[in-house]
């Protein structure tokens, strides 16, 4: 095992790290934006929307992420080129890339898992607080913006760190659709040096470090938020 060969590949490794983090951040942000309405409609209704949101969460949580990614990448990816208006659109360079499908699949996946959690969080905000807000004459949207959502987010905050780590651990799957993130970079190094362990052990260590950093980061955020029980 000779780890010194890795130095030649430093730019590739850094590029991989960049794409891993970009994939993680994009899917977390977009996923969370989707998860809020998905969680909310399951508590407030209307019925058909609530049913749809529950079905979405069940399907996402009941199937492997790998299959979801393949449906989007190979399935959608094989349909798009047949539609001329998509081929000619300005989005085509993006729609050709594996990275786009990886972000889409990871976003939907995170929305499914987090949507189920947000549902629980919205449901567990004390009724009295919402009634008090309404009694002050707040409109439903203001209640959501000022009271319901901030309280729900505080409730999920302790679980968010763990969910982020799970999401990080899912990112190597993107390498299977040609995204050169950390694991994809390790694969490329392996193919050009034919030495398996140095690149693989190295990215494993990077993932452990990233996990550690995320844990620290969320602990810091959690300490910023005053909790009164």
């Amino acid at each position: 095992m000779d780890f010194s060969v890795l130095i030649d590949f430093l730019p590739l490794i850094l590029k991989g790290l960049y794409y891993t983090i970009l994939l993680l951040v994009l899917s977390l942000v977009f996923g969370m934006i989707l998860a809020i309405p998905i969680g909310l409609v399951q508590v407030t209704g209307p019925r058909p929307l609530a049913w749809l949101a529950t079905a979405f969460c069940t399907v996402i949580r009941g199937t492997p992420l790998l299959i979801q990614l393949y449906i989007l990448y190979y399935g959608l990816g094989s349909l798009f080129p047949q539609m001329p208006w998509i081929r000619e659109s300005f989005m085509w360079p993006v729609l050709r890339e594996g990275f786009f499908y990886a972000v889409l699949a990871f976003t939907l996946s995170f929305a499914g898992y987090e949507g189920a959690i947000m549902k629980g969080a919205f449901a567990s905000v004390p009724k009295g607080e919402l009634e008090a807000a309404r009694a002050f004459g707040m409109s439903p949207f203001t209640v959501l913006r000022r009271i319901w959502l901030p309280r729900a987010i505080r409730i999920v905050l302790p679980t968010l760190g763990g969910e982020t780590i799970l999401q990080l651990k899912a990112t190597p799957i993107a390498a299977l659709v040609t995204v050169v993130e950390l694991y994809g970079a390790a694969g490329q190094i392996y193919r050009s040096t034919l030495d398996f362990f140095p690149p693989m052990i190295m990215v494993a260590v990077i993932y452990i470090l990233l996990t550690f950093i995320i844990t620290r980061l969320f602990n810091m955020v959690e300490r910023q938020v005053p909790q009164r029980r």
């Binding site: 780590i165 990080l168 651990k169 899912a170 990112t171 190597p172 799957i173 390498a175 694991y183 390790a186 398996f196 693989m200 052990i201 990215v203 494993a204 993932y207 452990i208 996990t211 550690f212």
Partner: peptide
């Protein structure tokens, strides 16, 4: 628990 499953499976298999 902190290394991604895919990476772990490939490393362990190899």
């Amino acid at each position: 628990r902190s290394v991604p499953e895919l990476l772990l499976i490939v490393i362990l298999y190899y």
